[in-house]
Design a binder for these strands. Structure first.
Lengths: 227, 227
DNA sequence: CGTATTCACTGACTCGCAGTCATTTGAATA
DNA sequence: TATTCAAATGACTGCGAGTCAGTGAATACG
């Protein structure tokens, strides 16, 4: 009699339903302005029930973020699988991230809202652990490609792949955040096209970590794009 | 009878006292965990009185941030005044910001906590205006130096000074945030010395926006430091 | 000098929300 | 049909931001 198994499945399903409801509410209102009562109503459950499945509002927020991390990882993974060379994998990774930013803006925002120490206080250790694993997966994928690039002589041997990753990641994210949040400000009061800035700085950073051979290959590749 | 003037002075003084009390509490607890009652107690006033001087907790937070902006501007201004050449002004600006980060970590954190839309909701338009003016002042100083650099042939003519500023500012800040928040993480689990990463990436970015002549001068300067 | 007026200040109050827990419900089992 | 037990409920608690009617001291006025 599979009663127990069915119960487990139903529990798991309920967890998902709650995350789906929470996703809708968090996307619309953000962490601060969303209330647990709203989420409960969206999930067609009482507030108490939500707390049977998630320890706190912040835990639930992280659960939603984890879905976003998975989407990002899958996008990266798919893109990388298609690219035949390490250089192309590197370039397609950058493109994928821009696409993630364009397609899944709400998840992007969630990622960067929780950068903060102070909000982490209410997160349970278990959920933090899970969340870190999700992020680690994405990180390892990216660093793996950079490492491969170094081995192939595409990227400079004197810079650590993980260090390259930090710089690329940080710079890209902070520019994307500026684009997301202050696009109009830059455009109108300063006449700056942030998307162009992003393209330029990506180029700049990529060339900076490449060897001479890498740059040559890169320029050849840019000169003859797939389209 | 200067009664009115005296009253005004006393009011201004009270505003400052409140900001000082708030600074202490916000530094210690952050925006989220600080309570207005705590701030009131630190200021030796009642909560109601605080609200006579500042419209909301977030407004008060911005008032504290503005003090930080002024400190930063003064550091920049002093440093720049000492430097004899544009190249040196540029380098000393970067150093000053690192010093600000080291000396005034709490203000640095405050700056980056309020990057977010959602928290801006409760800020009054007036305070936002004032805060933007403070930030504008720092921005103009930096962009002015870059512009001068372009005019002098130190920096590339084909990149807009404001664009350079965005990239340098974004990249530097996000690395500093990583250093502030995850220094131990990077150090221990990945063996990365983030301070070195910061130095490297600053060099890298600076060289990337320089002309050949600028780079030559830069290297000569680095080779023969003042000390 | 006594009275009226102003105004900075107070703190008890409201309101909204995260999180809790005693009670209820209903499905599985005996 | 009766019993058991986990899942679900929603009224309740506690806390903190923001409010406002009331207080008293300083100032202006007669």
């Amino acid at each position: 009699m599979g009663t127990h198994e069915r119960k487990e499945r139903e529990k798991e399903q309920r967890r998902e339903e709650i995350v789906n409801a929470a996703t809708k509410v968090f996307f619309e209102k953000g962490l601060q302005n969303a209330t647990m009562d709203e989420i409960a109503e969206a999930a067609e459950l009482s507030k108490g029930t939500i707390y049977l499945y998630y320890k706190s509002k912040e835990d639930l927020y992280l659960a939603v973020m984890n879905v976003g991390s998975t989407i990002l990882f899958d996008m990266f993974d798919n893109a990388v699988a298609k690219a035949p060379s390490t250089l192309e994998r590197l370039l397609i990774l950058a493109d994928s991230y821009k696409e993630f930013f364009a397609q899944h803006r709400n998840y992007f925002r969630m990622f960067h809202f929780l950068q903060n120490q102070q909000l982490h206080k209410q997160v349970s250790p278990e959920m933090r652990e899970i969340s870190q694993l999700h992020q680690q997966r994405v990180w390892d994928l990216a660093v793996g490609i950079l490492r491969r690039g170094v081995e192939e002589g595409l990227l400079r041997r004197d810079v650590d792949p993980a260090e390259m990753a930090v710089v690329l990641w940080s710079a890209t994210n902070s520019l994307l955040m500026q684009i997301d949040y202050q696009y109009e400000h830059w455009k109108h009061s300063l006449g700056i096209d942030m998307e162009r800035v992003l393209r330029h700085s990506t180029n700049l950073l990529l060339e900076a970590i490449m060897t001479e051979a890498g740059r040559a290959q890169y320029r050849r590749h840019v000169a003859v794009p797939v389209a």
